[in-house]
Each structure stands twice: as C-alpha cells, then as structure tokens.
C-alpha cells in the first residue's frame, strides 16, 4: 500500500479531471468554444507520449552501458505505452479536428509530425520482429531507439514551430500558451497531465510484470 500511493494519486487526479474537466466553466473563445475541453484529454496524451518515449530512450542507453534483460524489457514496454498514448492522442485530435476544422485529417504540420513520430516507433517494433538472435535484437533496437529519438526532436519540437499551423497555440490561434490559458483551466490541466502520465507509468509497469511472468513460465517449462 505504501509503495502504491502514486497509483491512488493517479486515480484521484483522473477522477478530478473527468468531473472538473466536463463540469467546470471554461473561457468562451471563438471557433474552439466548448471543444476547448479537449485540452484536458488530448494534450496530456502528447505529454505522456513524450515522457514514455524519453524513459524508453533512457533505458535503451542504460541497456547499451549495461546489457541486462531488465533494461531491455523496460525500454520496450515504455515504447509500447508511448505508442499507445500517441495513438490515443492522434485519435482524440482527429475527433476534435472533425468538429472544429471540418475534417479529421487536415494535413496540419503538427498532425503530420505526430504521424511520423508514430511511424518511427512502429519501425522500431518491425526491427525487433525481424532479428532472431535475442541479444542482437536488444542491442540493435536500443541503438535504433536512441537514434530515432534524436531524429524525432527536430520533427516534434522545431519544425512545427517554424511553419504556420491552424493548431491552437500556434500561428496566433488561441490555445496553450501563457497569455491565454485561463487560470481556471490550469487548475484542471496540470493535474490532468500528472494523472495521465502516472496512469501511463502504471500501464507500463503492468506490462513489464506480464513479461516477467511469461519469462518465468517459459523457464519452468524448460525445466519440466
């Protein structure tokens, strides 16, 4: 129970996000209107994805310094969870865009960047699938993980800021920046981000436990 306090925090924060996110008043802004509530669900997905992929990269670096199965499993499962968050982010974004922009896929620079980031990590899993030798698979995928993360930085953080975009928060559109994010919204937004990230870590730890259990089953079968 003492060790699991953060899981309880996550649940409480998410319950708060759900209730406050749908019921509390939000500023009336042109075009966005009530869909501004997507901020509590769509934006934290990207924060979560970045955090998961960063953790995955950190464990990939750790794996190269100290090749243990544990580092490899952690790296893969955090990448998996990050991919899941990314898919959710793109889906929620598409639902939002369908109502606000009129079509789910608008060819916005941020949408394209997100789609490419997901392609990178799908390629990562293809790479893992196509190497037979386990040790080599872990090492090659760790290298690709670090390389892809480095190549993703300009794609996600630099290029979208250089181009004009219809996405809220860029190109003069209202959205997430320190001048027009209402203080009432911050009260929900920051807890939402923390809650979703904690939930992501939780999902990853569960998957890691499943992996470990599977490995133990395999070992027992080998003995039998």
């Amino acid at each position: 129970m003492v060790k699991n306090w953060w899981k309880i925090v996550s649940i409480l924060l998410l319950v708060y996000t759900l209730i406050a996110g749908f019921l509390m008043s939000v500023p009336r802004l042109n075009i966005i209107n009530e869909s501004i509530r997507a901020l509590y669900f769509h934006v934290p997905m990207w924060f979560g994805m970045i955090v998961m992929f960063s953790v995955s990269t950190i464990y990939a670096i750790k794996y190269l310094r100290n090749p243990t199965t544990k580092n490899d499993v952690l790296s893969v499962e955090f990448a998996n969870t990050g991919l899941f968050f990314g898919l959710l982010g793109i889906t929620t974004g598409m639902i939002w865009a369908n109502y606000t922009w009129g079509s789910p896929w608008h060819g916005d620079p941020k949408q394209n960047g997100a789609a490419i980031a997901l392609l990178v990590y799908l390629a990562y899993f293809v790479l893992r699938g196509s190497v037979e030798n386990q040790e080599q698979r872990s090492r090659l995928s760790a290298v690709y993980n670090i390389f892809a993360f480095a190549a993703m930085i300009p794609l996600i953080f630099i290029i979208p800021r250089m181009t004009s975009s219809m996405h809220p928060g860029s190109g003069g559109n209202p959205g997430f920046n320190m001048y027009d994010l209402d203080s009432r919204m911050r009260m929900v937004f920051y807890p939402a981000v923390i809650g979703w990230i904690l939930l992501g870590v939780w999902i990853a730890t569960l998957r890691i436990r499943i992996r470990k259990a599977e490995e133990q089953i395999l070992e027992l079968e080998d003995y039998a």
Binding site: I116, A117, L119, V120, A123, V126, L127, S130, V131, E132, Q136, L140, V143, Y144, F147, A148, A151, P154, L155, I159
Partner: peptide
C-alpha cells in the same frame, strides 16, 4: 542518417525492406 541505419539493417533478416522502413521516418525531417 542512412549509413548507421544500413549497418543496423545489415544485421537483420530481409534487410532491404527493413532499410526502407527504418530510414523513411528519419529522413522525412
């Protein structure tokens, strides 16, 4: 970008397809 990816792809099976899959997302920026 492609030299390192080629060395990764060379270690895996069906390396030619893998080369394309690995390199395109990275070359896009």
């Amino acid at each position: 970008s492609l030299t390192l990816l080629s060395s990764i792809a060379a270690k895996a099976n069906n390396s030619n397809i893998l080369m394309a899959v690995l390199s395109f997302p990275i070359v896009i920026s």
